[in-house]
Design a protein around this nucleic acid. Sequence first.
RNA 1: GGCCACGUGGCGGAGUGGUUACGCAGCGGAUUGCAAAUCCGUCUACGGGGGUUCGAUUCCCUCCGUGGCCUCCA
Length: 468
Amino acid sequence: MSLKLYNTLTRTKEDFVPIDPANVRLYVCGPTVYDYAHIGNARPVIVFDVLFRLLRHVYGADHVTYVRNITDVDDKINARAVRDYPGVPPVEAIRTLTETTYGQFQADVAALGCLPPTFTPRATEHVATMVALIERLIARGYAYAAEGHALFHVPAMKAYGALARRSLDDMIAGARVDVAPYKRDPMDFVLWKPSSDDEPGWPSPWGRGRPGWHIECSAMSLDTLITPSGGGFQCDDPLKNTFDIHGGGIDLVFPHHENEIAQTSCALGTPRMANVWMHNGFLQVEGEKMSKSLGNFTTIRDLLADWPGEVLRLTMLRSHYHQPIDWTVRGMEESWRVLDDWYAVTADAGEGAVAPAVLDALADDLNTPKAIAELHGLKQQPAALAATLRMLGFLADTPAAWAARRPAADVDAAAVNALVAARLAARKAKNFAESDRLRDELAALGVTLKDGKDPATGEPVTTWEAKR
RNA sequence: GGCCACGUGGCGGAGUGGUUACGCAGCGGAUUGCAAAUCCGUCUACGGGGGUUCGAUUCCCUCCGUGGCCUCCA
């Protein structure tokens, strides 16, 4: 099967060729853990989970390494820790905040049907590698120390801007940043910055401080994906200092990913860091940009209170990952209806194989809307439908558990059963006025009836369920 | 201001230089005492204007609209 992926680096859809088919390596930028993740954060998590599952299917479950980092050092974290844990020593407050928040994140994404990545490194556990990377960059003339900072000197790198496709002139022309006096060039970015006593800090050749934003991903991908495969500081082989796929939100293209590339490629002598760069599009809520001021800042946790995780997952995958998506209640309702149908169709399904048509759609740059269309075509093949849905991270519930997820009206089952029996008797006696009256009465209680016939005897039978 | 995406039927959403996916809703039929559920069938589209072409929703230009990035936001 040939897998095609759109590569931001080349702006084209390319055939995916792993560096080592026995170990396909994927890195995705993970959460900064200071608050509940919002529904926009869920998009890359779900999209790259589908990619992870597809890669595992194609190359084998043991031949894919998926890394999603945890950013647990960040100024927003520091600020939140001070706010939420007054009186607690900062280091302790930060640890409590990041551990708590990451626990929430893990629970949220598990509910969304996402597999755990192979590794989930924390930035704070890779500071030594960050320091080593910065030292290497300084030694090779790509970075310099100034006033307790270490900075990457952008003009030292010829290819800078290749991912974002913008020239230095463009960036300077559009610059709206205050240029710190210790910068040699306005575009230079921070690799390391000094910490005050109540901020998290680590010893370094430039004094006690903490990493800049971008260096952590260079360090964690190096430690988890490059060094274990024979690359790293002791290796100048560009092929060994590159991994396969790097993913994240479209907003990370610049400056985050551009700077990651600058750091890793200049430190390790590799031209591109990762062969394929994938970026998911943004999400709006009910047609508006999601923001706290508009009051439509929607967390995954809030949505999970009212909607099954699989509903959120399907809603996310009904749009191609590259397209913008408008997140609406109507969209979630439609997803729920579709999943109800799939759960019903697959209730008694046996063992089946994953449908090739769905795999083909996924192999075409993760065309999940096309894949879903193909799923609709599998209703006559319940076993294949079930196997394919499971491969995509659906059907984790039993049919009964799924049905129970819909908030039901609070009804007295014995009373309902009595009314249903009375109606059945009335129908048998052809007293339809009475049977319709009983049906209306049940409807008023929030009970929906399903009439049918016993397949063996032909006797009329009625089942019911409570709707919300 | 600079750079970059996107704009498909009532709604969601693929795709393609010429046979108008798929889903939800709607409508029609089967079924039903009547309904519900189910099954079958079915209507509606490619932002505006130019251009290339035998032919464009699909390629090019332009305008309009929406959104993103421009130092720490998926």
